[in-house]
Amino acid sequence: MKIVSAKPFTYRGGNKAVLLLHGFTGNTRDVKMLGRYLHERDYTCHSPLYRGHGLEPEELIHTNPENWWQDVLNGYHFLQDEGFKEIAVVGVSLGGVFSLKAGAELPVKAVVSMCAPVRGKNIDRLWKRVLDYAERYKKLEGKNEEQISTEINELKKTPMHSLREIQQMIDHMNEKLSLISSPTLVLQGGLDDYLYTESARVIYDNLKTKYKRLKWYEQSGHIITLDKEREKVYEDVYIFLNGLNW
């Protein structure tokens, strides 16, 4: 079966721009419905696809956080080149980390961080996530169990050396939270792993911006943009962005 690859997307709307960022081993589908929701309300939305994502896992393992951050920067500059002077950055999971990083290092209108970790997972858990992604991808390709097992065993012989870089980047983000001065909304699923629920509190407590808010979704897990309460997530992001002085 041929998999239709995820792609970057741009929804051109009004003069308020939003950069939408997906998660690790995810793709732009993580934030596509949110992008449509905001576009219907006159926002221009752009979402880059990080290198190696939405492709065969054999492609993913040869990329790294530096590549992905450059893709974020390229997305930010794309919106600038389109003429937008004020850009809000909204991300889920690793995209949430990148949205915080953007808030600390770039001039942004606002930050929305959803289910972002600021305490890095151990290497084994990160590697398991890659292998789980590999299994899902190969099932979608229509491969049988024996073939999938053979290919994953082969994949294990070429580990993803950048996993430690991911861990370090997440840990270092914790030190940069005090640099964020833009209005910031922190959203977190109540059913998410403890690492993320604890990170949400750490993010909120360490932000120095005067305009910050932490909101929970008790029936949602990790990718809250696709979970049971997604419509409420979209509405809350819109209300937050619309309350800014653009």
Results as ranks from 00 to 15, higher is better:
Pro65Val: 07
Glu141Trp: 11
Val108Pro: 00
Val112Ile: 09
Leu55Glu: 11
Arg119Asn: 03
Val118Asp: 00
Asn242Gly: 15
Lys101Cys: 07
Trp68Ala: 08
Arg12His: 12
His222Gly: 07
Gly35Asn: 05
Lys157Met: 11
Ile61Asn: 07
Ser113Cys: 06
Glu135Cys: 12
Leu21Lys: 02
Leu226His: 07
Gln147Gly: 10
Leu94Arg: 01
Tyr217Gln: 02
Gly14Ala: 06
Tyr76Arg: 03
Lys16Asn: 09
Asp132Glu: 06
Glu198Lys: 03
His39Gly: 05
Phe24Pro: 00
Glu231Ser: 10
Cys115Glu: 14
Arg213Trp: 11
Val92Leu: 13
Gly190Glu: 07
Tyr217Glu: 02
Ser162Ile: 02
Arg125His: 12
Gln147Ile: 05
Pro48Ile: 06
Phe78Glu: 13
Lys109Leu: 11
Val4Lys: 07
Phe9His: 05
Ser99Gln: 02
Cys115Ala: 06
Asn15Asp: 08
Gln80His: 14
Pro107Gly: 10
Thr63Cys: 09
Thr197Ser: 05
Leu20Pro: 00
Ile223Ala: 10
Ile239Ala: 12
Leu106Pro: 00
His22Met: 06
Lys138Ala: 12
His77Glu: 04
Leu49Met: 15
Leu60Pro: 00
Lys7Leu: 08
His222Glu: 09
Glu145His: 14
Gln167Asn: 15
Val89Glu: 00
Glu198Met: 10
Lys143Glu: 14
Met33Glu: 13
Lys208Met: 11
Val92Asp: 05
Gly13Glu: 13
Gln188Ala: 11
Thr209Gly: 06
Thr209Val: 12
Gly142Lys: 01
Lys7Trp: 12
Met160Asn: 04
Thr197Ile: 06
Lys2Glu: 08
Ile87Arg: 13
Leu179Met: 08
His172Met: 08
Tyr194Pro: 06
Asp193Ala: 11
Asp81Met: 03
Glu175Thr: 07
Tyr211Ser: 03
Tyr211His: 07
Val89Lys: 00
Gln167Lys: 03
Gly189Arg: 10
Leu34Pro: 00
Ile170His: 04
Lys16Pro: 04
Glu58Leu: 08
Leu163Glu: 08
Tyr238Ser: 04
Lys157Pro: 01
Leu34Tyr: 02
Tyr37Lys: 09
Ile239Met: 15
Thr63Ser: 15
Gln167Met: 12
Tyr37Leu: 09
Glu66His: 08
Gly243Arg: 12
Val31Tyr: 11
Leu19Ser: 10
Ala17Cys: 02
Lys156Val: 02
Glu59Phe: 06
Ile3Leu: 14
Val108His: 00
Val89Trp: 00
Asn67Gln: 12
Val108Gln: 00
Asp227Cys: 11
Lys157Leu: 07
Leu191Ile: 13
Gly243Pro: 01
Arg12Cys: 08
Val108Trp: 01
Glu146Leu: 11
Tyr211Phe: 14
Leu179Gly: 07
Glu198Pro: 06
Trp68Arg: 12
Val186Ser: 10
Asp71Ile: 05
Ser99Ala: 09
Glu231Phe: 08
Asn153Phe: 03
Phe9Thr: 02
Glu218His: 12
Met114Phe: 10
Glu66Val: 12
Arg12Leu: 14
Lys232Gly: 07
Lys176Met: 13
Ala116Ser: 13
Glu135Phe: 05
Thr25Pro: 00
Leu226Trp: 09
Glu231Met: 13
Met169Gln: 05
Gly91Ile: 08
Leu214Ile: 06
